[in-house]
Design a binder for these strands. Structure first.
Length: 483
RNA sequence: GCUCCUGUAGUGUAGCGGCCAAUCAUGAAGCCCUCUCGAGGCUUCGACUCGGGUUCAAAUCCCGACGGGAGCACCA
C-alpha cells in the first residue's frame, strides 16, 4: 500500500497578542440548554489557544437571569464540551458569587462611579438618549449607600430600582452610556431559590469575574463589542489590568434550529424527540448524526478568528467529516422501501464484497443465494430496473427484468455499457431504519453482516454515511450523517 | 436616528505596498481508477464591492460611496 503524501496548507490560528507565559481563557455560557453548533466556535478557539500556550481554560456558568435557566444545562454543557474534546480545568458558577458582586458594586458606589436609580425605566432610557442624567445620578454617596442597603434587603419592588454603573453620558455611542449593573428579580433561582433578590447584569458580573479569575485573553462574538466597551469602564474604575479582547464575526447557520427556547418548546410539544433531535443544531444532534468532534474543530480552526461575518456551510463540515470517517466506515447494503424480486435461470448465485474497498484485510461480506433466489431492491432502484430492463446486483450478478427476474450472468463489464450497479439484500437480511436529517424514518432492510458490525459508523453504499444507533435482534436502527 | 465592526471565487480562508496573470480547503463540472452516487488521481470553473486619492508600484495605505452585520434591554 502506498503512503499518500497529500500536500496541504497548514491551518493555524494567529498568535495571540501579549502572551506572557501561560494564558487564562474562558467559555462562559448561560445555562439555558445544551450547547449548539454556534457555541462550538468559541469553545474550540479558546481550547486551541490554551492547548497551544498552556494555562487554564475556565468554564463559567453565567446564570444571573433566573428566568432563563434550565437546571439540566449545568450537567449537559460539560458533557457537550467533553465530547468536543474541550478540556476546562476550572469551573465557576456565577450564582455562587453574588456576594462578591454586591461588594464590588458597593465599592463603585463609594467611588461615585455608580448610582441607585429609582426612575421609570423608559424615562431613564430617554434621558440617556439625550445625554442627560436622571435625578438619581448625582445624589450624594451617603444616600446612594443607604438606597443600596435597602435595595439588597429587598425593600424595593421588582422593576422599581436598579443599580447603574456610570460611564459617560456624553459618549457618542448611545450603547455605552450608563448601564444597569444590578436589577431586582422575584423569580426564584434554580440554585439559590429566593435567597437573593438583586441579580447582577452580565456587564457587571463578567467584568468582575474576568478580573477575579485572571483572564489574560477573551475571545467572544462581535455582538459583544459594545459590552466589552462597557466592561472596560469597570476595569478602569478599579484600576484592573484588562485582558486582550478578540471579537470574531457573527456566524449565520442556515437551515438549522438553534434557539434553545424554540427547541425546548418543540420538545414539550412532542414535535422533537429531545435535545438530540436530528433536526436541531445541538451538539447532541451532531454527535447522534455521526459528526466527529475533530471535524467541528477543524472547521473552526480553518475559519479562524476574523471579525468578518460568515456563512456556516454544512457542506464544508460534512466534507471534513467525510475525510475523518471514510477510512473507518465499513460498507454495507441498505435497501430503502424494499421491492422483492425472485431470480430464475440459475440454481445458486454466489458473490462477495470487501467490507472496505481500501482495506481487504477487514474481510468480506459473503453471499450465497439458493432456491428461491430472492433479492430486494430499493423502491427507487426497482423503478429504474423496470425501465432499464437490466441491472447489476453489485458484487453478485446481473439480472434482466421479468417476473420473476432472469439471471443474466456475472459479467462486470456491463457496467461500462451503462448498466447500473445497485445495492440489494437477500432473504437473510435484517430490518433496518434510517433516521434522516428532516426527521423522516426510512424503513428498509440491511444485509445481515451490518447487524454484527462493531464500529458505530458505516457507509451504506450509494446512500451515505450513517451512525448505528441501536441494535436489537433482527433489527438495526441508524442515523444518516451525510453522503 | 446614533455608534461600532466588516467587505478576496458558491462557501470558508491565505496574502496586508512590488515575489499576486492572487493560496489552500470545500463545492461544481469532466476524465481516469474503483463492481458505490464513497475514497484516490488528474483537469477545469471560479474572487480582490465600486469610485477617487497617495505612490515609480495597491488586493494590500487614505478618503468616500455602496453592501453585509451588530449594539443603543432592568437577556446573555
Amino acid at each position: 500500500m502506498l503512503v499518500k503524501e497529500k500536500k496541504e496548507r497548514k491551518y493555524e490560528l494567529p498568535e495571540l497578542q501579549d502572551v506572557d507565559g501561560k494564558v487564562v481563557m474562558r467559555i462562559a455560557p448561560g445555562p439555558s440548554g445544551p450547547l449548539h453548533i454556534g457555541h462550538t466556535r468559541v469553545s474550540v478557539l479558546n481550547d486551541e489557544y490554551v492547548k497551544r500556550y498552556g494555562g487554564d481554560l475556565v468554564l463559567r456558568f453565567e446564570d444571573t437571569n433566573p428566568e432563563k435557566i434550565d437546571p439540566d444545562a449545568y450537567d449537559m454543557i460539560p458533557e457537550d464540551l467533553d465530547w468536543l474534546g474541550v478540556r476546562c480545568n476550572r469551573t465557576y458558577i456565577q450564582s455562587d458569587r453574588f456576594e462578591m458582586y454586591y461588594d464590588c458594586t458597593r465599592k463603585l458606589l463609594e467611588m461615585g462611579k455608580a448610582y441607585v436609580c429609582t426612575c421609570d425605566a423608559d424615562h431613564w432610557r430617554n434621558l440617556k438618549e439625550q445625554r442627560q442624567a436622571c435625578p438619581c445620578h448625582d445624589l450624594p454617596v451617603e444616600e446612594q449607600l443607604d438606597r443600596y442597603d435597602r435595595f439588597l434587603a429587598g425593600e424595593y419592588e421588582e422593576g422599581k430600582a436598579v443599580v447603574v454603573v456610570k460611564t459617560d453620558l456624553n459618549h457618542p455611542n448611545p450603547a455605552v452610556r450608563d448601564f444597569v449593573a444590578l436589577r431586582l428579580v422575584s423569580h426564584p433561582h434554580p440554585r439559590t431559590g429566593d435567597r437573593y433578590v438583586a441579580y447582577p447584569m452580565m456587564n457587571l458580573s463578567v467584568a468582575i469575574d474576568d478580573h477575579e479569575m485572571g483572564m489574560t485573553h477573551v475571545i467572544r462574538g462581535k455582538d459583544h463589542l459594545n459590552n466589552t466597551l462597557r466592561q472596560e469602564y469597570v476595569f478602569d474604575y478599579f484600576g484592573w489590568k484588562k485582558p486582550v479582547y478578540y471579537h470574531y464575526g457573527l456566524v449565520n447557520i442556515p437551515d438549522t434550529v438553534l434557539k434553545t427556547s424554540l427547541i425546548k418548546q418543540s420538545i414539550r410539544d412532542g414535535e422533537y424527540t429531545g435535545w438530540d433531535d436530528v433536526r436541531t443544531g445541538t451538539v447532541r444532534a451532531m454527535e447522534r448524526r455521526g459528526i466527529r468532534p475533530e471535524a467541528i474543530r477543524r472547521y473552526w480552526v480553518e475559519a479562524g478568528m476574523k471579525a468578518v461575518d460568515i456563512q456556516f456551510s454544512w457542506e464544508n463540515l460534512f466534507g471534513m467529516n467525510r475525510d475523518i470517517i471514510d477510512d473507518a466506515s465499513n460498507r454495507y447494503f441498505f435497501v430503502h422501501d424494499p421491492v422483492r424480486y425472485d431470480i430464475d435461470g440459475v440454481d445458486v448465485i454466489e458473490g462477495s464484497a470487501p467490507k472496505h474497498p481500501d482495506h481487504p484485510e477487514r474481510g468480506s461480506r459473503v453471499y450465497r443465494l439458493e432456491d428461491p433466489r430472492t433479492v430486494f431492491l430499493s423502491g427507487e432502484d426497482s423503478k429504474a430496473f423496470a425501465e432499464a430492463k437490466s441491472v447489476r446486483l453489485k458484487d453478485l450478478c446481473n439480472i434482466d427484468y421479468a417476473l420473476p427476474a432472469r439471471y443474466a450472468g456475472n459479467d462486470v463489464s456491463v457496467l461500462k455499457h451503462g448498466v447500473r450497479a445497485v445495492q440489494w439484500v437477500g432473504r437473510d437480511s435484517v430490518e433496518a431504519e434510517l433516521l434522516m436529517p428532516d426527521g423522516a424514518v426510512w424503513k428498509g432492510l440491511a444485509e445481515k453482516d451490518l447487524a454484527s458490525e462493531a464500529a458505530d459508523m458505516v457507509q451504506l453504499e450509494r446512500v451515505g454515511f450513517a451512525r448505528i444507533e441501536g441494535r436489537e435482534p433482527g433489527k438495526v436502527s441508524m442515523v444518516f450523517a451525510h453522503r
